[in-house]
Amino acid sequence: MFNLINPDGSVRDRLPVTLDEMKDLYAAMVEARAYDDKSMAMQRQGRLATYAPFRGQEAAQIGAGAALRPGDWVAATYRDAALNWMAGYPWRLLILGRTGDERGGQVPEDVYVLPPSITVGGHMIHAVGLAWAEKLKGSSRIALTSFGDGATSEGDFHEAMNFAAVYELPTVFLCQNNGFAISYPTVEQTRTETIAEKAEAYGMPGVRVDGNDVVAVMVAVKEAAQRARSGKGPSLVEALTYRIGPHTTADDPGRYRDEAEVTLWEEKDPLTRVRRLLERSGAWSLQWQQTLETQASQGIESAVAWAEAIPIPEPGTLFTRMYAEPTPPLLEQAGEATHG
């Protein structure tokens, strides 16, 4: 397994990032965690629909996001808010979406991130199609799709991997192996030892990285992205990580896993190890940490305030966003819905 930063903050090798870049990656993970914590709290207060927390997976998502260029496509899951945010999806729209508002899916024109796919696995092939279009257009943009270990059991995984490989499409497959498909452990889902080795069957490179090591993930995804951009086709990156929280706010993980296992993974926390690394370099202080947390929290709070201030959609909007122009049957129904 490819790894650069150990849980105690020591490094395996010289890191290909500057200290400032390291601090930026850390700050991004702190901000992502603030979003995750806030979302969990809001869901408990009934202010958000079901929420799927990514606690423990910040390095995998922030590292992958940091490896992309502006204009690259991202097709990810409901647990990938941190990745989507790194790729340009504003927190305020992510929150608006989770309050139950389709306008949360209306990303700005210069953002190329699809709103989260809720069904499992169907979105991987979308990245393949997006990459295909870019290849046909002759652009240098690539597409990254993120999915969990559970999605690799879907037939869609096979079709997406095969299509991407057959046509040498500029696609990066990022599997965040977080240990569980809701309650079903990864080790029971597959007979292969790793997800990464499945790449071989498709004729593409596959690599397993320490998914809690933000720099290792960034390096691996950058390499895959570079390969894609230079016309050499797709790659699979397996980021081995762990879902510290429940599957969603509707889940009780106590039914299927030991608390001891969670504790073990908490010791490998992706934020803690970078903080330790920065401490070792003399680049971390409690004051800086507090500043980061305050700024993150303020940013998230203002995004929440913005989203919650958006008025509930008018009933007519149900009908106007179905087609470019509402069809006659929809116009008729809209009339009934809005005038009773």
């Binding site: 496509w73 092939i125 979308h126 990245a127 393949v128 199609g129 997006l130 279009a133 079709e159």
Partner: peptide, 28 residues
């Protein structure tokens, strides 16, 4: 062959890839 594309036998893949192409501005 770049525009009239023979695909593997995978209906979900065909429609899903066409979807991605359409989102990215093609007319599949």
């Amino acid at each position: 062959a770049q525009r009239v594309i023979d695909t593997p036998v995978a209906e979900s893949g065909i429609v899903g890839a066409a979807f991605g192409m359409a989102v990215a501005g093609l007319r599949p």
